[in-house]
Design a binder for these strands. Structure first.
Lengths: 178, 178
DNA sequence: TAAGATTGAACAGTCAATCTTT
DNA sequence: AAAGATTGACTGTTCAATCTTA
């Protein structure tokens, strides 16, 4: 705050009303921590994957999701959902992955409106060789920061927040086969 | 997984070694939840702020951080730190905010290398009017998803992860006056 | 020589518009 | 008319290079 006549953002007022406009110190700490995480964790993952595998985190996610399918194939719209992206973003990314020979697109025989993305052999090899280092990074940065109890706690919290972000979504986890 | 001769990414192997290469089901759930949060929460905040105030989440953060300073002033390098951004990104954003008349830049009298960013009156009014709705959104989406115990738990977890992301950082919270 | 800051070029993401198939 | 997918235009971010002052 700049003067004492004006409220301090993200802090609680001296006399907290029922639905306080600002955040209490604890709430503020949670929010600043989350905001910082939102900004720095994706950058760290991108850095690791770019350095070690020439992939962005999002590109890796696309390849990984395809690699988990029995036929290494997924419709573009489904792939967009499971990778938490817009159809437009996915379309652009897959176009580049196709140029690099990691993925191929083909028309869906069952529905002419749909396009299937298929992981190529080169794409498979790319994920297979990138995965160990990436998983190790995820462990080091995130997973190993928690004990089993905390893993359960944060999972429950995630689900509650995600439900608020998209109330129409079925209960998380979204991904088939989890 | 595509065949039974190959590992499934982000899942645990049948016989987990000491430092397992893949993630257990619980770990995988945590990670997928966090990845989903990383992708969707910033988008939701951008949408709210763009709609209600014509600001991105990052622009709002810049204005909010300045508004909390007694003189509504911060060095560019400090502002970059507290907003979790690169100097380059901040420089571009402040340039646009300056064009819009929300922020002004001036040379730091104490050190000719530094630039100070100062919140203009219009910028102050913008944050003041944007803040209530934004804080309400943060509450609805994030804070109110947790009880007090969970707020404390996630705060502790955040700090542990952030410490791994930037081991050189002093113990979080970073921001002066918290 | 280093820190702070900015810039230009390359790149990625978003939004609205479009096209095709159902 | 609606769903799936893509594209073009615009905007924002990143990276390396640059400039200034300490």
């Amino acid at each position: 705050m700049a003067t004492d006549t004006t409220p301090s953002f993200h802090r609680n007022s001296p006399e907290p009303p029922h639905q306080p406009q600002w955040l209490t110190p604890t709430e503020r700490e949670v929010w600043l921590g989350m905001a910082r995480l939102l900004a720095t964790l994706p950058a760290a993952l991108d850095a690791q994957l770019t350095r070690d595998a020439g992939l962005t985190f999002y590109e890796y996610t696309v390849l990984a999701m395809l690699s988990e399918q029995p036929d290494r194939t997924l419709r573009m719209s489904t792939l967009a959902e499971v990778t938490n992206a817009s159809q437009s973003r996915l379309s652009n990314v897959v176009k580049r992955l196709e140029v690099r020979g990691l993925v191929q697109r083909r028309a869906d025989p069952a529905d002419g409106r749909c396009t299937q993305a298929v992981l190529c052999e080169a794409g498979w090899n790319t994920v297979v060789s990138a995965a160990p280092q990436h998983v190790a990074a995820v462990r080091e940065l995130v997973i190993d920061a928690m004990d089993l109890e905390q893993l359960r706690q944060i999972s429950a919290i995630h689900q509650r927040i995600l439900a608020r972000l998209d109330p129409r979504a079925t209960t998380y986890p979204v991904y088939p086969g989890n």
